[in-house]
């Protein structure tokens, strides 16, 4: 198998993993195994898969409350992610964070942030630490289109550009800030027009085409490694599911959702592409699916078997 073919199949496997994992999460939510807020990434998988493929182990990743995809694809074990959602002590945040606050510092996965825009300054700081300490890493910071209305978005772009810090700002533009459509929250809905006003190299990319996302991310990261300073990707995507499990979706047309899901599903687009190229036959595709299903089954078993944190340990880790 050629490296390009192998890599494309791997990206498909990653997106399928995130999709099946989250479908299982939705099912478990219905059964009451997972509680709290649960924000699914279904439809947006190509963003995490494409961007993370362009990063190395010394780079930092910081994401939003819709971060199951980033966590899984950064290598956080599926069992630790599922156990976290079950609120178990073997969860990746020891049951303190839940779905919105997955952490794995060893893999430089810095969470799971649920204050919209609040992660951007932290990402700028991670890049500042790398710069100050003479380390080569870059920091990828994911956020939604809603965050672009926050003051911290503009402050962070300015500071990163001013101090030439290697932050890859990844705007996951799914066209809705929760229930408020882009053109209803932005005076200038062209989000890619904003970062250049801070002097930040910016690219807009089709977020349903994982290979295009990866290419754009690689270009940005290579530029950042060669010339210190931030870069910005506006990744156009779409959320196929509700904002969270509590969302009745009164703000968008069912036909619009259906159109995106039928015509622009990133997994189906890559599936079709691979089939056209003759890179993945039906048997191999079925095997891929079985492998992912096994991973998800194992993750659920690990979560089910996980212990509860003893209540005596409630106050541990508040201070060092």
């Amino acid at each position: 198998m050629s490296p390009a073919r192998e890599h494309a199949v791997e990206l498909l496997r990653q997106m399928v993993l995130v999709r099946r994992f989250e479908e299982k999460c939705a099912e478990l939510y219905g059964l009451g195994k997972i509680r709290g807020f649960l924000h699914l990434y279904v439809g947006e998988e190509a963003v995490a898969a494409g961007v993370l493929a362009a990063l190395g182990p010394d780079d930092n990743v910081l994401a939003t409350y819709r971060e199951h995809g980033q966590a899984l694809l950064r290598g956080v074990p599926p069992g630790a992610v599922m156990a976290e959602m079950f609120g178990r002590a073997n969860g990746c945040s020891r049951g303190r964070g839940g779905s919105m606050h997955l952490f794995d510092v060893e893999r430089r996965f810095h969470g799971g942030h649920a204050i919209v825009g609040g992660g951007l300054p932290v990402a700028v700081g991670l890049a500042l630490a790398d710069t100050h300490l003479g380390r080569a890493g870059v920091t990828a910071c994911f956020f939604g289109d809603g965050a672009t209305a926050e003051g911290e978005f503009h402050e962070s772009l300015n500071l990163a550009a001013l101090w030439r810090l290697p932050v890859l700002f990844v705007c996951e533009n799914n066209l809705y800030a929760m229930g408020t459509a882009l053109e209803r929250h932005q005076a200038v809905p062209d989000l890619a027009a904003k970062p250049p006003t801070y002097g930040i190299p910016t690219e807009r990319v089709d977020g349903m085409d994982v290979l295009a996302v990866e290419d754009a991310a690689r270009r940005a990261v290579e530029r950042m490694r060669a010339t210190p300073g931030p870069a910005f990707l506006e990744v156009r995507t779409y959320r196929f599911r509700a904002h969270s499990m509590y969302d009745a979706e009164l703000y968008r047309d069912k036909a619009e959702v259906k159109r995106w899901a039928e015509e622009r599903d990133p997994i189906r687009l890559l599936d079709d592409d691979l089939r056209r190229r003759g890179w993945l036959d039906a048997d191999a595709r079925a095997a891929l699916e079985r492998g992912v299903e096994q991973l998800v089954r194992d993750a659920v078993a690990e979560a089910e078997a996980g212990p509860l944190e003893p209540v005596e340990d409630l106050e541990r880790d508040v201070l060092a």
């Binding site: 810095h110 951007l120 300054p121 932290v122 700028v124 700081g125 500042l128 630490a129 911290e152």
Partner: peptide
Amino acid sequence: TFVGAGIGAAIG
């Protein structure tokens, strides 16, 4: 943002 950057730098 500069307090947040301080937080991020400390984490880093």
